[in-house]
Each structure stands twice: as structure tokens, then as C-alpha cells.
Design a binder for these strands. Structure first.
Length: 265
DNA sequence: TTTATTTGACCCAC
DNA sequence: GTGGGTCAAATAAA
């Protein structure tokens, strides 16, 4: 048996300590972000697709965490042994919605160099597909709710459904998720596309480049999983599709199905 | 047969 | 003592 301390460098020890503190203290997202800034090599992401991030992972453990309804799964880079890649991640379900949101804690950067833009595209595409499926289901459920509300005779004694407020909330959440996902994926495409041209200008000024574009593995990096961004109230899905999902972005990711289904659905 | 996953036990920090 | 992280044998899947 290899003693754990043999495989731990100082940064991972730091990360471990950070995780413990992170979990023992308040679990607010802001505090986790604050921790990310302090502790190098660790980052936390919230995603609907924790298992497709462009890298290959091997599960080495699973554990129920106190105060959490869902188990935490422990993954290490598949090339941990072959290439000594120190990257690892913990995945835990964050809520029980459909689809469930996952919290993914990444520790250490990959040194195996097995990720490529193609797999990132695939990861992004799958991620969007999952989110879109969920959005579709959500929208359909809301639509059914609305139809039931219209069709149900008012003389019936059933209580009124949680109608317009809940429906609007659902639409708002849906927009937030779609906007966040698309922006995140588009950033990923843009970065991957411009990587060969040595173009850091493609990135938003206030964000560091993603993991695939960085050589500095000691710095915190951002992968292409979505962060939840608030969509403006007057933003419609048609706006998103017409202005953002132009062929320049849709074709490389083969997202025509998404554009189609959203337009026709 | 090889590779991946599961799961109980162990280690260690707090 | 408790809880999170990891190990490694057992098991399942390809």
C-alpha cells in the first residue's frame, strides 16, 4: 500500500485542508470562491454534466458526506499511474432536481495532456444536450400546467395550480441556465478556436483563460462547465438563438438539433 | 483476460 | 471520537 503522504505535494495538502475547511464552514458559494482564490490548484464548479469534461477519470471511492443526502464520488485522472497526473475531482449531487445539479471540486491540474479541443467540444455538446433536454422537460411541464389551468372549469373545487408566478419562475430559471450554458460553451469554443492563433483577446477581460489554454498549472483555472448567470428579464429565447447561436457557433458543435428543437418546440 | 467500479476498512487532521 | 479522503480486495463488465 502506498502511503497517502507519499503522493501528496504541498499544494494538494493545501487543497485538502481547504476542502475540509470549506465543508466545515458555511457552504455558501461565495465562500468557496473566496477559498479558491486563497488555495492554489483547487476549484469548485456547478454543472449538470460532471462526467464529461474532456478528461478521462477513474473512480476510486465513494462516501456519504455528513449533512448531505447524496454520496460524494472520488475520481482521479485515468493516467494517474501511467503519467503521474495529479488531477482529481470530487463529484457530489447538489440537489434533486431534474436534471440534478452537481458540485464538482477539481484538485490539481492535469499534467497528462490528454484533453483536446475535440473532446472538449464533445463534452460541451453533451452538456448542452442534457441541459436542453431538461429545459424542454421543464417547459413542457410548465405548459401542461398552464393548459390544465385554462382547461379546468372554474367551478371545479380543485385548488388553483401555482400558475403564473411558478410558471414565470420556471421560465426565468430556464433562461438563466440556458444563457449560462451557452455563454460558457461559446467561451470554450472561442478559446479553443483561437488557441492556435495565440489569441488571448478572445477571452472576456475579467476572466482568466480556461484550463486547456493554460500552461501554468499552479493557477486556478476555469473549465467549460457553466456558471449560473442571471438572464435579463426581457431576454427571450429567440434572441438567444438568433443572435448567439449563429452558424459560426452552431456548426463546430453540431448544435443544429438544439436550435431546431427549441424553435419548433 | 483486462479494465473499471464498488465498498469496507484504514489513516489522519481536527 | 468524528468525519473526510484514500486504499485495495472483491466484483462486475467489456
Amino acid at each position: 500500500m502506498v502511503k497517502r503522504s507519499d503522493n501528496m505535494d504541498s499544494s494538494s495538502e493545501c487543497s485538502r485542508g481547504a476542502h475540509k475547511r470549506l465543508l466545515q464552514d458555511s457552504r455558501s458559494y461565495d465562500q468557496e470562491n473566496a477559498m479558491k482564490k486563497v488555495c492554489i490548484g483547487t476549484r469548485t464548479e456547478y454543472t449538470y454534466a460532471p462526467y464529461h469534461d474532456g478528461y478521462q477519470w477513474r473512480k476510486y471511492g465513494q462516501k456519504m458526506i455528513r449533512g448531505n443526502s447524496f454520496p460524494r464520488c472520488y475520481y482521479r485522472c485515468t493516467y494517474h499511474q501511467d503519467h503521474g497526473c495529479p488531477a482529481s475531482k470530487h463529484v457530489e449531487q447538489h440537489n434533486s432536481e431534474d436534471p440534478p445539479l452537481f458540485r464538482v471540486i477539481y484538485t490539481n491540474e492535469h499534467t497528462c495532456g490528454t484533453s483536446n479541443s475535440a473532446s472538449d467540444y464533445m463534452a460541451s455538446s453533451m452538456q448542452i444536450q442534457q441541459i436542453a433536454d431538461a429545459s424542454l422537460r421543464k417547459a413542457q411541464a410548465a405548459e401542461r400546467l398552464r393548459k390544465a389551468e385554462v382547461e379546468t372549469p372554474r367551478l371545479m373545487h380543485s385548488p388553483p395550480p401555482r400558475c403564473s408566478g411558478g410558471y414565470n419562475m420556471a421560465m426565468k430559471e430556464e433562461k438563466d441556465v440556458i444563457v449560462s450554458s451557452l455563454l460558457t460553451v461559446i467561451r470554450g469554443c472561442h478559446i479553443a478556436e483561437s488557441a492556435g492563433n495565440n489569441s488571448a483577446a478572445a477571452l472576456p477581460a475579467n476572466r482568466p483563460p480556461p484550463a486547456v489554454a493554460r500552461s501554468d498549472h499552479h493557477s486556478c483555472s476555469y473549465a467549460i462547465s457553466p456558471e449560473l448567470l442571471p438572464a435579463s428579464d426581457d431576454l427571450t429565447l429567440d434572441f438567444i438563438l438568433d443572435s448567439v447561436l449563429d452558424p459560426h457557433w452552431v456548426e463546430p458543435l453540431d448544435l443544429a438539433w438544439f436550435k431546431e428543437s427549441t424553435h419548433t418546440g
